[in-house]
Amino acid sequence: MKTTDTPPPPAETVPPRMPSAAATPTAATRDKKTGGVLNVFSHGMLVVWAVLVVAPLLWAVMTSFKDDHGILTSPWSLPNHLHFENWSRAWSQAHMSDYFLNTVIVVACSLFGTLLLGSMAAYVLARFEFPGNRFIYFLFIGGMSFPVILALVPLFYVLQNLTLLNTIHGLILVYIAYSLPFTVFFLTSFFRTLPTSVAEAAIIDGASHTRTFFQVMLPMAKPGLISVGIFNFLGQWNQYLLPTVLNTNPDHKVLSQGLVELATSQGYKGDYSGLFAGLVMAMLPVLAAYIIFQRQVVAGLTAGALK
């Protein structure tokens, strides 16, 4: 790509990576001017979008410290004083603590199950030749493009027949099943990129296939597991459709679903401040976790789409 033979000697004095400087002075100033206008414009648009993103979130945080009267009469005024009691009321009386606990249990179990079962299936599909391999692989990844809502109607009755409807463990199994397509798709391509020699060495040393998988391959697949784990964590933590249909027992409600419940039932209670406190309470942990782990989160969420 070097073009040192083409430019005439005087051009050597100009830094080769400064294209605009090579032009005539008038062209250079014009270029600078349009560049400046564009720069202001582009930066302006970036700021506008940033404000559009942040303003509703900050507004929610501010509103969660106001009393009901302030919320209903002057949406943009600052709280007259910080009503921390909104938060404690939402946490205890509005069952936010229960919703949190349920969500943590459901997501912890289904995340573990998804990663374990997903990596087992992906490893076998990526590394072993057997009849039906391709068929099973496409069966799994086909699930990524179908509308979940279509399956939900019969699924409701499948769960009812298995007495899993409205139970925590039923919800966990469903979360795992619906997380498998992407997990298997992602991890299969990840396992294919890992070197085969290490696993072969382990087999020659007398390790069983199972032991090779758990003690050699899984540790090697850690970066892939982290990416897909973050992807699934966010998807399962934020899940709304599945619990709304399959988990209507008030004691087992998860966070997003519980908040919507709170919003629809607050019609007669009128506890707007408590609702906003609950809303912010549900937002903050994920946002905080994202800011801390943002590099990994972004990598995990975009890795699949870039493949």
């Binding site: 993103v53 933590w237 934020n238 709304y240 997003s256 908040l259």
Partner: peptide, 13 residues
Amino acid sequence: IVYFFPQVLSIAI
């Protein structure tokens, strides 16, 4: 970082 905020929130929220 800022633009990504909505992505980590539940669509229900």
